[in-house]
């Protein structure tokens, strides 16, 4: 891992308009991603976790411009030159996407059922006009071998494969252009545990072999902990905490992180039957509460939290840790391992 920042995101926002009436008048906005800042270093795997609807997928899609961000910069430095992904035109985008690729969540929906696996894997090369048909097919075969399938399966269709195998095909496709940076959007959440382990191991191996950088979006905290170097926790369109993977689990600095950790189911019957549950549910992102986003569910909320919106601030005694809480340096929160 080097110190070079391959990706730097500044004040990224993605608002979806809410339209009403015959004239589709805009009556408000769903703030799916509401001003996030972070960076990813070369060779790193950064996890992005949060509950459903917190904006993690929207954030991932905005980075690669599957969605056009409303505001903000996505500074991407695959080699020497830095480019703002958010400002690129179609042609520039096509070029930059050689270095930034995406693995989708649902392996059943993300592969065209009418294309053979060979065509699916070689399609990115075709779009980028790389090599002849024969060369592309050769490379597709190599990639399939890399992800643990066999080149002889190239003529088959997606429905002939199991969920885990399809996810491997999706991974092979994302690697076909030799990208520097891959966004993995819940790549294992549709898979069974035994297959999930296979795919996680594969992603790690590929990272080592091709020196890849990952943004790993997931809702399963134990999966994220397993694969990530650093983790970002999102809540209601904002990043509420950024920390090293083990730090985050041992000493969370944001009350929301603490609550998430307490809710993790652990496969150990001795650890007690009842998990501590966070009360209530996520507020409507079209109408977030005043002050801190989390104040409606926070056990430590004070008057200040209902009035002032905390920004992401550094945690004392640590260079890279950040948390969006007024009391980040005062609260004593319990981590995962100290649970009763």
């Amino acid at each position: 891992m080097s110190d070079k920042r391959i990706l730097e995101v500044r004040n990224l926002k993605k608002y979806f308009p809410i339209q009403k009436g015959v004239f589709r008048r805009v009556v408000g906005h769903v703030r799916a991603v509401d001003g996030i800042d972070f960076y990813i270093k070369e060779g790193e795997c950064v996890g992005l976790v949060g509950e459903s609807g917190c904006g993690k997928t929207t954030a991932g899609r905005s980075l690669i411009r599957l969605l056009d961000p409303t505001e903000g910069e996505v500074l991407f430095t695959p080699h020497d030159k830095t480019v703002d992904m958010a400002a690129l035109d179609k042609q520039g985008l096509k070029q930059m996407r050689q270095d930034m690729q995406y693995v989708f969540q649902d392996p059943f929906a993300s592969l065209n059922p009418r294309m053979t696996v060979g065509r699916i894997v070689s399609e990115p090369m075709k779009i980028q006009e790389i090599g002849t048909h024969k060369e592309r097919m050769l490379r597709a075969g190599e990639l399939l071998e890399k992800v643990g399938l066999s080149a002889s399966q190239m003529g088959r269709f997606p429905h002939e494969f199991s969920g885990g195998q399809r996810q491997r095909i999706g991974i092979a496709r994302s690697l076909s252009l030799n990208p520097r940076f891959v966004i993995c959007d819940e790549p294992v959440s549709a898979l069974d545990v035994s297959v999930q382990a296979q795919v996680l191991n594969l992603l790690k191996d590929l990272q080592d072999e091709f020196d890849l950088t990952y943004l790993f979006v997931a809702h399963d905290l134990s999966v994220v902990e397993h694969i990530s170097d650093r983790i970002m926790v999102m809540y209601l369109g904002r990043i509420v905490e950024i920390a090293g993977a083990s730090e985050l689990y041992e000493t969370p600095k944001h009350p929301y992180t603490e609550a998430l950790l307490k809710a993790i189911p652990i496969a150990d019957p001795k650890l007690g039957r009842r998990r501590i549950a966070l009360e209530g549910s996520v507020p409507d992102p079209a109408n977030p509460p005043e002050g801190c986003n989390f104040n409606t569910r926070c056990a430590y909320a004070t008057d200040r939290c209902h009035k002032e919106d905390p920004s992401l601030q550094p945690v004392k005694g640590s260079e890279e840790r950040m948390a969006a809480c007024h009391y980040v340096n005062e609260l004593e929160l319990t981590g995962f391992l100290v649970r009763e």
Binding site: L200, E225, H226, I264
Partner: peptide, 11 residues
């Protein structure tokens, strides 16, 4: 095959 928190060994 379940990832366990605090254990980053290969699954």
């Amino acid at each position: 095959s379940i990832p366990k928190i605090g254990n980053r060994e290969r699954l």
